[in-house]
Design a protein around this nucleic acid. Structure first.
Lengths: 139, 139
DNA sequence: GTGATTGCAAATCTTTTGCACTAAA
DNA sequence: TTTAGTGCAAAAGATTTGCAATCAC
């Protein structure tokens, strides 16, 4: 597993034209090995340190943004002042609980926005984000 | 108009159980008199000062959140690190241009999300936010 | 009066930046 | 080499907080 995950991380970084440095490979492995997840920069930093990877928070931010720009991650904005990065890059949307702060995927086929309106003149649609905000029952 | 706008602001504040202080009335008037808009705290502060209303940024934040909690405003989260407040509290969605930072309403009837998925067990849906991200054509 | 509201300045939190140092190719 | 990437610490924003002063009722 370890070997093939490393290989996957390497392949993905190379495909994205990102030099596979020690830190980027380690972060890519953390993100790719654990299945689908939603992480904040701070969380990933904590995990990296816990896993014995010496990496600065600045590099975490750099890497998250480079990964996002390369399509390895998706950024999800649900709260002012905090960004989540989603390792699921397929077309899908999210449930977000404002009480617990928990973010959860909605499989792509479970929600469709029919008949998108025309974008403002001179612009084209780049992405559609649907956030379904939920709260604990009876709150 | 000035008189009736004041009256409207007053009525709305009273209905929301917010003591109509000088600052709150002035801010409510700024927000209600100009039609539908999307403002940031910083912007509103600037406008208030320009209009000769002495008010601190802390009070702007307090008021925006109190207005939001009372349903006088809607908060729209499109970018990490910046909150927009929307004076249109009817059911509708938004276009957001990541290049220009411009936020624009989509009339409620122009977009419908059909067949909402079941929310996670133990939760109920409180709101559905759709952000259509756009970019200048050919960018 | 009395309790809610405000102002101010400091604190907090997330994210970005500048620059010398290190490492990949 | 040589150029990209990293760490660190400082800076930059946005937002919140604590507390004394002020205002609505």
């Amino acid at each position: 597993m370890t070997t093939s995950a490393t290989t996957l991380a390497l392949r993905r970084l190379r495909a994205a034209n990102l030099r596979p440095t020690r830190q980027r490979v380690a972060l890519a492995r953390l993100l790719l090995e654990s299945g689908e997840r939603h992480v904040t920069a701070e969380q990933l930093h904590g995990e990296a340190l816990a896993a014995g990877i010496r990496v600065s928070l600045a590099t975490i931010y750099n890497s998250l943004h480079q990964f996002t720009d390369s399509g390895l991650l998706h950024e999800v904005v649900v709260e002012p002042g905090r960004s989540y990065f989603d390792t699921n890059t397929s077309d899908h949307h999210h449930f977000f609980c404002e009480v617990t702060g928990k973010l959860q995927d909605i499989p792509g086929e479970d929600l469709t926005v029919t008949s998108l309106p025309m974008p403002p003149p001179g612009t084209e649609i780049s992405r559609v984000d649907v956030i379904i905000r939920v709260r604990p029952e009876g709150a």
